[in-house]
Write a protein that binds this DNA or RNA. Structure first.
Length: 420
RNA sequence: CGGAGUGUAGCGCAGUCUGGUAGCGCACCUGGUUUGGGACCAGGGGGUCGAAGGUUCGAGUCCUUUCACUCCGACCA
């Protein structure tokens, strides 16, 4: 893509209302835009691209683990929620409204009931099990206090998966598989994270684990063991506990952003909703279920909370809207522009996500392009400038802002190696 | 829902105490000069001051009511 044709409204001023780094930077770098209602944001082109990239990583790993992607309507009949009693339990957080026929509906905050309904209408035999179905879809929760930009919006993109099994043992096997799958997803996204024991909250069920992105700004307090991999949310462990219940090692307190949560549900939903299958003994049994969520839009905030500096965002390779930014120092210089166009085509041909900063208006000089590169936080910038007469370009690494001079003929290979 | 704060141009703000017909920076438009780290000069466009009501000759400013947003708390996949 060419910068000159993209809507990227970067700003120098820090928005007054934003407190968190991710909130400020995503606004300043033109990824998102405040709509006016609390917790509602427009995703601008850069934000949409980044969201889609993160979403693709989530989808790929789930598909590899044998999950089935589906798509449910965001509007759900309230009657489904009444079957499980959650219409009352969710309270005001569940946004309700009526259609022209006075029928009650909700904007889905999560989809256990809707997905159980999908499965009970289609799965009748143990031979069809196990089954894991998921969607990556917008959710709406009328939060008491939405805040911190994408961290706790009212409308947010969530991956919600639901597994159905004949036995508890098989559900636990899937639970472990999802834990491994989540670890792959978070690792691919370049995140530093911790899996912790957690409370099951309003979803209900037996065991649950949370995937915490480690960041000082996190809303959750967690206890982690420095000797083994044990970790727990303070909701489920005494905050003054100093010894690891697993290995006896030292526990220390830290902050985390809850970006994923997996639950062993059992029959909490299948029983009241009469979602049953016929077992090998020809008897009806309720499905044993698991449910697994990832806050996809929250991941964007989490990635930035963990990866930013005073100049702007520092996206990880898997999440950056573009991995390479070609900066044409003087876009009116024909030679520079020619070299830049050629490099742009070559990188595209090699499958590299590249942005060409070809802006040639008189207000957009080299300084502006550099500032935008730093603020947006793409992984690398290639500066096509004066050195081009000697066959050299400058390669800048966003993470440490280091600069190196590279021969033009080698730059494609160097970049591909770095992005590997 | 309790506490605190803020609503004035697209964004960031001043003006409100002490009422006199709206201003600054950024952004935007035109022309010129610049061109490797958010340039400079000149000119220009854009606001019924969150909303409603009231006091007054006159309200951004005073009074009443109301709405929204932000932060802290409670709550929360």
């Amino acid at each position: 893509m060419r910068f000159s044709r993209m809507l990227i409204p970067t700003t120098k001023e820090t928005p007054n209302d934003a407190v968190l780094a991710s909130h400020k930077l995503l606004l300043r770098a033109g990824f998102i835009q405040f709509v006016g209602g609390a917790g509602l944001y427009n995703f601008l082109p850069l934000g949409k691209i980044t969201l889609d990239k993160v979403r693709a990583v989530v989808k790929e790993e789930l598909d590899k683990a044998g999950c089935n992607e589906v798509h449910l309507p965001i509007v759900t009949p309230l009657s489904l929620w009444e079957e499980t009693g959650r219409a009352d339990k969710f309270g005001k957080e569940l946004l309700r409204f009526k259609d022209r026929h006075e029928n009650s509906f909700t904007l889905s905050p999560t989809n256990e009931e809707a997905m159980v309904n999908l499965v009970r209408q289609t799965v009748k035999s143990y031979k069809q099990l196990p089954l894991n179905v998921y969607q990556i879809n917008w959710k709406f929760r009328d939060e008491v206090r939405p805040r911190f930009g994408l961290m706790r919006g009212r409308e947010f993109l969530m991956k919600d998966a639901y597994s159905f099994h004949a036995t508890t043992e098989d559900m636990q096997r899937e639970f472990d598989l999802m834990e491994q799958t989540y670890k792959k997803i978070f690792t691919r996204l370049g995140l530093e994270f911790k899996v912790v024991e957690a409370d099951s909250g309003a979803i209900g069920g037996a065991g649950s684990k949370e995937f915490m992105i480690l960041a000082d700004s996190g809303e959750d307090t967690i206890m982690v063991c420095d000797a083994c991999d044990f970790g727990a949310n303070v909701e489920v462990i005494a905050e003054d506990e100093t010894n690891c219940p697993k290995c006896g090692g030292n526990l220390s307190q830290t902050k985390g952003i809850e970006a994923g949560h997996i639950f062993q549900l059992g029959t909490t939903y299948s029983e009241p909703m009469k979602a049953e299958f016929l077992n090998e003994n020809q008897k009806l049994e309720p499905f044993v279920m698991g449910t697994y969520g990832i806050g996809v839009s929250r991941l964007l905030a989490g990635i930035i909370e963990q990866n930013h500096d005073d100049k702007g965002c520092v996206w990880t390779k898997a999440s950056a809207p573009y991995n390479v930014d070609i900066i044409v120092a003087k876009a009116k210089n024909e030679e520079q522009m020619e070299v830049a166009e050629k490099l742009y085509s070559e990188l595209q041909a090699k499958g590299v996500d590249v942005l060409l900063d070809d802006r040639a208006d008189k207000k957009t000089g080299f300084g502006v392009k550099m500032k935008d590169f730093e603020l947006i936080g793409m992984n690398y910038a290639v500066v096509i400038g004066n050195d081009i007469s000697e066959g050299k370009v400058e390669l800048i690494t966003r993470k440490d802002l280091s600069k190196e001079s590279v021969a033009l003929e080698n730059i494609v290979d160097v970049l591909i190696e770095k992005l590997r």
